[in-house]
Amino acid sequence: MKGEKKKKIIKTIKIDVDSCNGCRACEVICSAFHASPKYSSNNPARSRIRVIRYPIADIYVPVYAGEYAVAECAGRDKYTIDGKEYDECAFCRASCPSRDLFKEPDSSLPLKCDMCESDPSQKMPLCVQWCLNDALIFEEREEEVEEEVKQEDLEIGLESLANKYGMDKIMDVVARMSTSKKG
């Protein structure tokens, strides 16, 4: 089941929480870029990158919006790094029912970072361009990945049934079903 090798561009925003000065310029420019028409308004609540910040505890974590999650996690984590306790979900990118991050404020529809590829595509995400303190660094690399030929869903399902009931039984059922359908 070996597939062919394919080239793929991986875009990454490296986040250096130690360099973040907490100014939220990333939120300003993100929400302005994604306004319609472009730059016609801005509103950090619509931004696809948010700085999770707790200044008194010296916590600043820029997080950009990832996938929508239908349900919140069953358990939650807390991280202590260098003596600072980071809230549960501080590093999570999901737009999820547990919090108000990454949702359109009026419709609650989920938001997701598109790396500013929407028209016109930017040479690098604008949050990175507006971060003069290098808390956000853009990296693009080419990776060669082996594209596995994926088993079809049907095949996966059948295989698991065969494992459970045995191949003979499956063949019998298939034969009977096909007769009755024809008849």
Binding site: A32, Y39, S40, S41, N42, N43
Partner: peptide, 22 residues
């Protein structure tokens, strides 16, 4: 606490001025 939009009159030109400042 506010979560509403603030509008810009001439968006493209305004942004260009901001970028010049940066």
């Amino acid at each position: 606490r506010g979560t509403q939009d603030l509008n810009i009159a001439v968006p493209g030109e305004f942004l260009e001025l901001c970028n010049e400042v940066l």
